[in-house]
Design a protein around this nucleic acid. Structure first.
Lengths: 222, 222
DNA sequence: GTACTATTCAAACAATCGTTTGAGTCGGGC
DNA sequence: GCCCGACTCAAACGATTGTTTGAATAGTAC
């Protein structure tokens, strides 16, 4: 119970800074990510998750306390890194001599799109993100706002600078459409079959398309 | 059992063509629509649905056979009319002397957007539609394809005509983004608070924005 | 060795799930 | 009157849900 908030220390054992790659906790998070993407938060049961992760059923409540908290941790595991990368990309974009709207969008899109290709389960997570958008779940929105609203604020500030002809309400309305559209598109991206081009090329092309698409939508006059 | 496929005849009683507005079936469909929008297909239970509809629990299986079939019928009730209107709007657009891409998009968007404002539960249904997009449910996709693919085909034909620089694969990829973005935006539209303008004005403005947005994304060169 | 904490495990918990049953109600046709 | 089909209802079905329990199993510190 109390231990649910503490950390398991395993792995190669070089002191207590060991990264826990295959711990029970991480196995659960990975399996949950895939199954939440496939069947939704309500549709995937803890028995499916623990079975896929090859851990005991009780391990979820032991390590995470509840299913709802497991959902939160599935987001936290990826979003901590993703938003750090986004902020870093944004800082880099701001330093460009000809910093433009497309660069802001690029800083937002590219780190997320990179998730869909390079690693273990990142593509599933992007689909989980799209689920979260469609869910409109109040508790989940609160969790995301509490933890990552500062990132959104940074981006909104730059969007507002590049789109001075839009009042605040109109800007939020459009950003909502754009972020929803981008998230939906990226979720599908992981599924679409590639042909003839490398994954890196395909991702670059998709990023450029999405950015042009979003920029055009944001710039369009009322 | 057998009766599940037959029709209840109630109401004012002018012959057997009576429209059943408040029948048990319609009450279930209405309640299911709202609760599926709010909690998802797996998240909303039949007990919640029948309780909200003020009908007996067994009525669902009596009239619809199963929960999955109830989900299908929730879609059918709206999509039959919606797609008829979309095809009618498309025919009208094609007759215009200066028929353009924006008119095709208008024929697609406006009937759906009209759902969010004028009637009883239409806004909820648009959110159900957005759910369906995020779900990627195979059985649901098959149902929608089996029943409404001819509508999509008509629209795709015109989009292809207006966008000859895109090959077929690229066109589908963009249409997928656009329809996902539009559906997501329209789902949110029902929730957004209006201020100072009438509902009709607000909807017109939103339609114009969405269409410009989508047209810009579709026209953007690779 | 003992003591202690962390973790795993099988088993059970009450609650809820979709579905089925069988008796009961209602209304029109004969 | 009677019958019949359509419909509603309370109750129960077995299966599955998230969660909890208490014993078993490590591994470390003393």
């Amino acid at each position: 119970m109390v231990a649910a908030t503490r950390r398991t220390l395993r792995g190669t054992g070089i002191g207590n800074l060991t990264i826990e790659l295959f711990s029970t906790k991480q196995r659960i998070l990975g399996a949950a990510e895939v199954l939440f993407a496939r069947h939704g938060f309500a549709g995937a049961s803890l028995r499916q998750v623990t079975s896929a992760a090859q851990v005991n059923l009780a391990a979820v409540n032991y390590h995470f306390g509840s299913k709802e908290n497991l959902i939160n941790e599935v987001f936290r595991r990826r979003l901590d890194g993703l938003n750090t990368e986004r902020l870093a990309a944004l800082a880099q974009a701001r330093a460009k001599p000809a910093y433009a709207l497309e660069d802001t969008l690029d800083a937002f899109v590219r780190p997320a799109l990179a998730l869909t290709g390079d690693d273990h389960g990142g593509a599933a997570f992007v689909r989980v993100l799209a689920r979260a958008y469609a869910e409109h779940n109040e508790r989940l929105r609160k969790f995301l706002h509490d933890n990552y609203s500062h990132v959104l604020k940074e981006f909104v500030a730059d969007f507002a600078r590049f789109l001075p002809h839009l009042d605040k309400q109109e800007l939020y309305w459009r950003l909502d459409i754009v972020s929803g559209a981008l998230t939906y598109a990226m979720a599908d991206f992981g599924v679409i079959k590639r042909r003839g081009v490398s994954e890196q090329q395909h991702r670059d092309l998709a990023a450029r398309h999405l950015i042009r698409f979003a920029a055009a939508g944001l710039r369009a006059e009322g």
